[in-house]
């Protein structure tokens, strides 16, 4: 049962990532695209956690934590750039 549920979950998260990419391509504004990137990072975390459960390996946890960190920092940097025209002020 767990295997079937995992497969369904993989499919749902994959569709979610596809929708995120669609929003990333279509836009229409720059904040929209940043929002899509942020959502994609979160979906990537979800995918990594599912993969960890599927393969029974704890190694994916570090990758998930790193993607969370990088996703947050890149969102903040891009927003700062839009707000000020510069990242470090």
């Amino acid at each position: 049962m767990l295997a079937i549920v995992l497969n369904i979950a993989f499919a749902l998260v994959a569709v979610a990532i596809a929708l995120g990419f669609w929003r990333l391509l279509v836009g229409p504004s720059a904040p929209d695209r940043i929002l899509a990137l942020d959502t994609l990072a979160i979906n990537a975390i979800a995918l990594l956690i599912l993969l960890g459960i599927r393969l029974g390996s704890g190694l994916y946890f570090e990758a998930a934590l790193l993607i969370a960190l990088i996703g947050f920092v890149s969102t903040v940097a891009l927003c700062k750039y839009l707000l000020r025209g510069d990242i470090i002020d």
């Binding site: 749902l12 998260v13 979610a16 929708l19 995120g20 929003r23 959502t39 979906n43 979800a46 599912l50």
Partner: peptide, 12 residues
């Protein structure tokens, strides 16, 4: 998985 999907659906 369903909530992640609904979040992305809302985004689209």
């Amino acid at each position: 998985a369903i909530f992640t999907f609904i979040g992305a659906l809302g985004l689209a």
